[in-house]
Design a protein around this nucleic acid. Structure first.
Lengths: 185, 185
DNA sequence: GTCTATAAAGCGATAGAC
DNA sequence: GTCTATCGCTTTATAGAC
């Protein structure tokens, strides 16, 4: 395999996939090295702070991705309903129809939550707030909008659990569809 | 601390708590020893198969607990609606209002899913089937009953994620209440 | 920026005394 | 059934050549 000189940015998505697959504790440097196709020396050149810095960088990149592709469209789309519909499309695509888990959700359930409490909380808080704001622009009352947003974001996380448990992506897609319909009631 | 001669049964709940807290990879024998108050020698006396056998035993015990306190009441309660209500009460109590995570859900999201695929799948399958059966006895059609059951079980898993992310048990209790109300619509 | 070699610590697991 | 001591391996992290 040809080795290419990498930049830190290029490494992050590969790193994210390793953490998603093995979790924080299970992501050994050997697996990280394999997944990023980088020697340990190179890895520590990019992340002198070790695994902790790697995970923090991955979380920051995930939040940035969602901000760009999900949160900001939700907040700023001229057509709020279209912004919501776009969110569901992006989510289905991002999580590969339930075959890819949410790293932030994984961290939330594990002891990593303590280490990365701010990043974990901010990710879900920003998602729920952005969705609730869009729902308000669709005509919902504030309190009901927040409750619905929590239901949708939580429902997505739960659907990822079930889709993985059954190894059946259809259950993820069906849940997205059901949640989307609920918002239109 | 007084050391008491243990039996395998007594060790399982402590072991489960260690796996819940640190995950499979993060549950080192040092932490297991600390959490169970047993030396490594004693641990391997009970579980010659090591961590793998420990986790399998914990999963089996969890499934047994749910079968006894949740699944069978759902299937056999003379009053189906009361069985469903009892499920929500048991779930809120078991998960300590969202402060305790679901080990099966954690395993479903991680690479542990491959190792324990059967136990993970069976747990959720049995839960969904038992709840759907109760909903049918409440007058729902079969297909809709299954969809609702998936929504509830998935919703519970997602609520555990959010409750931990925000460190706010109220969001778990509110979700349980909302899901319970949906079943009565 | 990439690699190999290596250090120090922690890992899962075993042996054997009591 | 419990413990301590220990094995062999893997871990994270560092050093230094290129």
């Amino acid at each position: 395999m040809a080795r290419v000189v990498a930049e830190r940015e290029d490494v992050l998505p590969l790193l994210a996939e390793v953490f998603r697959t093995y979790g924080f504790e299970g992501a050994s440097l050997a697996r990280i090295s394999e997944g990023t196709r980088l020697g340990k020396g190179s890895i520590y050149h990019f992340f002198p702070g070790g695994k902790e810095e790697m995970a923090a960088a991955v979380l920051a990149e995930i939040e940035q991705w969602f901000r760009l592709h999900v949160f900001e469209p939700l907040r700023e789309s001229a057509d709020a309903a279209a912004g919501v519909a776009d969110m569901f499309a992006q989510v289905e695509s991002y999580f590969l129809s339930g075959q890819r888990v949410c790293l932030v959700g994984v961290f939330a359930l594990g002891s990593e939550r303590d280490r990365f409490a701010d990043a974990v909380r901010d990710y879900f808080a920003e998602w729920i707030e952005a969705l609730a704001a869009a729902l308000v622009r669709c005509g919902r009352k504030g309190k009901q909008a927040t409750a619905l947003a929590e239901e949708v974001v939580g429902g997505i996380q739960g659907a990822l659990v079930l889709a993985r448990a059954f190894d059946r992506p259809a259950i993820f897609r069906a849940t997205l569809k059901r949640l989307q319909e609920r918002l239109q009631e």
